[in-house]
Design a protein around this nucleic acid. Structure first.
Length: 516
RNA sequence: GGCGCUAUGGUGUAGUUGGUUAACACGCCGCCCUCUCAAGGCGGAGACCGCGGGUUCGAGCCCCGCUAGCGCUACCA
């Protein structure tokens, strides 16, 4: 059977029952964009298949888990448009008793055993090296995974010692022979020899708290999860989980692992090394349109194939999404930590600009409103008496903005008088010609006299004035741009005169004469 | 160390029974438009499809080997 056949078979296996997927973040920090993408793919799959999307907070690491990060993760998901969980949120820590009971049941059934070996200390600093070194020495000494002296202690003796208060851990009794296999919906057929898998610990010695692999499996069984869609970093460990499913006598769900998102240097994206670019909230705070970022995220490790379409609405995403379209190689998230203009992936930035420029105005307006509000630039009349002006102005300036922040930054002059003059713009458009000192107040007068106040008349007034004074219209136009907006770039100048308004325009022209 | 996964221009991807000059998007360069900057239009540079073998009349697509990157390997999640 070819891998392709396996993939079809595996996805068809559960097709008679409702798809149930879950997103299971651990609340130990902000929402990582990789996790956000995992959540998105789960959500998309559920919606595409008419299934259920569940959320499980994996807060078993009490030391590192915080309520604040749970809240932040939920907020992040909501920002992306994912807040419609189909059932109550499950908090994994509350199921510890259940997890423990499952492991103890396995002990009684002889599928797991109590390990009375004293708990070893582990320096959490360089775990990776420690593992490699230990493996190396183990290999050279020819040690085998099944050598635990407590593996075959009779159940009665095990019970007796436990009752006597002797501390123990519980380990799964992995059969020395054979192999585990499963068909990953993305990576295809996966096999791993049992000899490669040690008798994994299910419950810690002492407090008998459940370990990750056990908790995940028991919860997924409890929640009736049919498809486990998660990061590829879990791919090899899945074999261990398959073993637990089998020991527990449960049906193994379909697994679908997602390629990782890497930093430009091909290293795994991490909070420690790469900072705020990996946090979803950064994108919200820096003016991303949720739909734009969601669209971008969907393209990392997935594509609809065929036409290679990129700009997709949520509805289109749901319609096009499939596990078959998920890539197997890791994606590089391209950004620069030295160049502020490339603080995040260029394509993400481009897509955001694209959304800002082309999305329905009425959807953009509320976002501009909240941006102006947080910058202290919002006025109630923008939704009242000046609503028409507001819509027209946003339409005018959105064309060349990249993020929502630009509405209060570069766009400040449209909403306030206390904007800043860009020194480069002043040098280029005002200081360039000293005649402007006289010309600007003159132009202000002409602008004040325009009647009726139309684009055409404003243009005529300016051009006539330029001709009379024997200067190029461009000189006046560019000077006006800096005078009215503080910048050297922007929309067509006569549109700007109109947006800023006659009185403010004249005032700013006169004020700018002082800067010449 | 072991096991696993991956490998198409700088980045994201298309290329799903092997068949002419390897497609699209972002980015980059140039031209047009023009009051600036974007947008838009047009054009361009950039990939011997990781490397080496093989199968075939013919391979990015199939097979083998190698290399590199990444992941996992824990009484972390």
């Amino acid at each position: 059977m070819s891998p392709t056949d396996c993939r079809l078979l595996s996805t068809d296996y559960f097709s008679f029952m409702t798809v149930r997927v879950r997103f299971a973040p651990s609340p130990t920090g902000y929402l990582h964009i990789g996790s956000a993408r995992t959540a998105l793919f789960n959500w998309l799959y559920a919606r595409a298949r008419g299934g259920k999307f569940l959320l499980r907070v994996e807060d078993t690491d009490l030391q590192r888990s915080t309520e604040e990060s749970t809240r932040s993760i939920l907020e992040g998901l909501a920002w992306l448009g994912i807040s419609d969980y189909d059932e109550e949120i499950v908090f994994q820590s509350r199921n510890a008793d259940e997890h423990r009971a499952a492991a103890l049941r396995l002990v009684r059934e002889g599928k797991a055993y109590r390990d009375f070996t004293p708990k070893g200390e582990r320096s959490d600093a360089n775990v990776k090296q420690e593992i490699a070194e230990r493996a190396r020495t183990a290999a050279s000494e020819g040690a085998d995974h099944r050598a635990n002296p407590y593996r075959d202690v009779p159940l009665e003796e095990s019970e007796r010692r436990a009752e006597a208060g002797e501390p123990f851990a519980v380990r799964l009794k992995v059969s020395p022979e054979g192999q585990t296999r499963f068909v990953d919906a993305v990576y295809g057929e996966q096999e791993r020899a049992h000899s490669e898998i040690e008798d994994l610990v299910l419950l810690r010695s002492g407090d008998l708290s459940p370990l990750y692999n056990l908790s995940v499996v028991v919860d997924d069984i409890g929640m009736g999860i049919t498809h486990v869609i998660r990061g590829q970093d879990h791919l090899t460990n899945t074999h261990k989980q398959v073993l637990i499913y089998e020991a527990l006598g449960a049906t193994v769900p379909t697994f679908a692992h997602l390629p990782l998102i890497l930093a430009p240097n091909k290293a795994k994206l991490s909070k420690r090394k790469h900072g705020e670019v990996v946090s979803l909230t950064t994108y919200r705070d820096r003016g991303f349109v949720p739909a734009a970022f969601r669209n971008y995220l969907a393209l990392l490790g997935w594509s609809p194939g065929e036409e290679n379409k990129e700009l997709m609405s949520l509805e289109e995403l749901v319609g096009l999404f499939s596990l078959e379209g998920v890539h197997r190689s890791n994606a590089v998230f391209n950004f620069s930590d030295t160049d502020p203009r490339h603080w995040t992936d260029q394509k993400a930035l481009w897509m955001n600009a694209e959304y800002i420029r082309t999305m329905p105005l009425e959807e953009l307006l509320p976002m501009v409103r909240s941006e102006l509000e947080s910058a202290g630039l919002w006025r109630a009349e923008y939704e009242g008496a000046r609503a028409e002006w507001f819509g027209r102005t946003v339409e005018l300036i959105r064309q060349r903005f990249i993020t929502l922040k630009d509405f209060s930054g570069q766009g400040r002059a449209y909403f306030a008088d206390d904007f800043e003059y860009d020194p480069a713009a002043v040098a280029k458009n005002l200081k360039k010609d000293s005649a402007l000192r006289e010309l600007l107040p003159g132009l202000a007068e002409r602008i004040e006299a325009v009647a009726p106040w139309t684009l055409e008349n404003t243009e005529k007034a300016l051009r006539d004035f330029a001709e009379e004074k024997g200067v190029k219209a461009g000189l006046l136009i560019n000077a006006s741009r800096t005078a009215l907006t503080g910048q050297s770039v922007g929309p067509s100048m006569f549109e700007v005169f109109d947006a800023v308004g006659r009185a403010a325009a004249a005032r700013r022209l006169r004020a700018a004469a002082e800067l010449v």
